[in-house]
């Protein structure tokens, strides 16, 4: 044993480390090939799944949102998939796997959402509830004959589609007023006072200056200023035919 202390020990150490590294390398190789196999199996499965259920994905909003949720959980963004269509394969790998049905669905929907927001902007100033967008699109689809079975849409679909407009910098934002999800299609940030007024309208249907003063403890000029500002942006409509002037929001209809 003591002989090991000799010069030969140096050689041995080199030998040892070589053995270890070659062993490590082979381990890595097996690992990698295993992962590759797993990945390709997974890709194939996901791809088959999405083609197999393509029509289901398009037609059944519940199924679609579950599918989208599953994708999110495993770190796949079905929307990012085709928005980053680059030359190199890395960019659109998901698009290839998922087929185009899922993301196309959301993009087509996004176009319809933009249309509805534009068309209704004069009446609501550019603030519209997700619910109204949903109903309008379904109604439009029905009147144009649509895809036969009729378009099925969930609130979740609308929200996802609006999110995929973000990279365009188009100023379409989701916002929550009270319990209602809204789409804001004009570049306007609401301050807390304005948001508060809109929230009260969500609940009561309208506001008056007195109502704001009594319930929020604001002084009248503050309430008036907030209301006037929202009026100027066409978010509120005024009613002067019953007692105190009241303010209503078309988006809260």
């Amino acid at each position: 044993m003591r002989r090991r202390v000799g010069l030969a020990a140096l050689d041995r150490r080199v030998q040892d480390s070589q053995t270890w590294s070659s062993h490590g390398a082979s381990l890595r190789r097996t690992h990698q090939s295993e992962l590759t196999t797993q990945l390709s199996v997974f890709q194939a499965a996901l791809s088959t799944f999405s083609t197999q259920y393509a029509s289901e994905i398009r037609q059944n909003p519940k199924f679609r949102s579950e599918f989208a949720r599953m994708c999110t959980v495993i770190g796949v963004d079905p929307l990012a998939a085709s928005s980053s269509r680059q030359q190199d394969k890395g960019g659109n790998i998901w698009a290839e796997m998922l087929g185009s049905s899922v993301n196309d669905f959301y993009f087509e929907l996004a176009v319809k959402i933009v249309e509805v927001c534009r068309e209704t902007r004069t009446k609501n100033g550019g603030l519209i509830s997700v619910n109204e967008v949903q109903e309008t699109i379904i109604k439009k689809d029905r009147s144009t004959g649509g895809g036969g079975t009729g378009l099925q849409l969930s609130e979740d679909d609308i929200i996802r589609s609006v999110e995929c407009l973000k990279p365009l910098g188009s100023g379409f934002e989701m916002m929550k007023i009270g319990k209602t999800m809204m789409i804001r299609s004009v570049p306007k940030e609401f301050n807390t006072d304005q948001a508060k007024v809109l929230e009260v309208i969500q609940v009561l249907g309208f506001v008056t200056i007195r109502l704001l003063v009594d319930n929020l403890g604001w002084i009248a000029p503050r309430a008036q200023a907030v209301v006037d500002d929202l009026m100027a942006e066409a978010f509120l409509w005024v009613d002067e035919q019953e007692g105190e002037t009241s303010y209503w929001a078309p988006c809260a209809l």
Partner: peptide, 9 residues
């Protein structure tokens, strides 16, 4: 919609 009957400014 009640405000529909008031001319909007």
């Amino acid at each position: 919609f009640p405000p529909f009957y008031t001319r909007q400014p």
